[in-house]
């Protein structure tokens, strides 16, 4: 814990929505610029492309697009920054990256086949993912 706290310093709060908004874009840019080293660290070049990872980051940010409170945006940015730092410090393993950012929330098992239709929801959720 002290490890992450040392590497992530808390910036002062955003004054207004506009500043928070530009901070989100700055964060997105720095995340995009670290994609090559992330692919390098976790050997992801055979499972994902840079543009796919970029879209995944954008999708994660877009999940919170309805938030309008600058303080909440700052908090979410801090969490994102922390996550990015953890990833770059190799605090995760390859399967964490693949599970969270490559396969995403669809999961490895997708019911495309007709015989999957009868499967119980419990099992589908079980197969899907344990990242929420």
């Amino acid at each position: 814990m002290s490890f992450t706290l040392r590497s992530v310093k808390v910036p002062p709060n955003s004054v207004n929505l506009e500043e928070a908004r530009s901070r989100v874009f700055d964060f997105f840019r720095s995340a995009c610029r670290s994609i090559p080293s992330i692919i390098d660290i976790y050997n992801l070049d055979e499972v994902v492309t840079k543009s796919q990872l970029r879209s995944t980051i954008a999708a994660e940010i877009r999940k919170n697009c309805h938030v309008t409170n600058p303080k909440v945006i700052d908090m979410l940015l801090f969490k994102g920054m922390e996550e990015l730092n953890n990833i770059l410090e190799h605090a995760k393993q390859r399967h964490h990256m693949i599970g969270q950012y490559v396969v995403g929330h669809h999961g490895l098992v997708q019911d495309l086949d007709s015989k999957d239709q009868g499967l119980s929801d419990f099992l589908k959720n079980f197969y899907k993912s344990n990242y929420f």
């Binding site: 874009f25 997105f28 840079k50 543009s51 970029r54 954008a58």
Partner: peptide, 22 residues
């Protein structure tokens, strides 16, 4: 939207091996 805009600019940075200031 504006986030897509930034994403395209980042893709262009990667394609042309640039770093465009914010």
């Amino acid at each position: 939207d504006s986030l897509d805009n930034v994403e395209i600019v980042m893709a262009l940075e990667e394609e042309f091996k640039l770093e465009i200031p914010d």
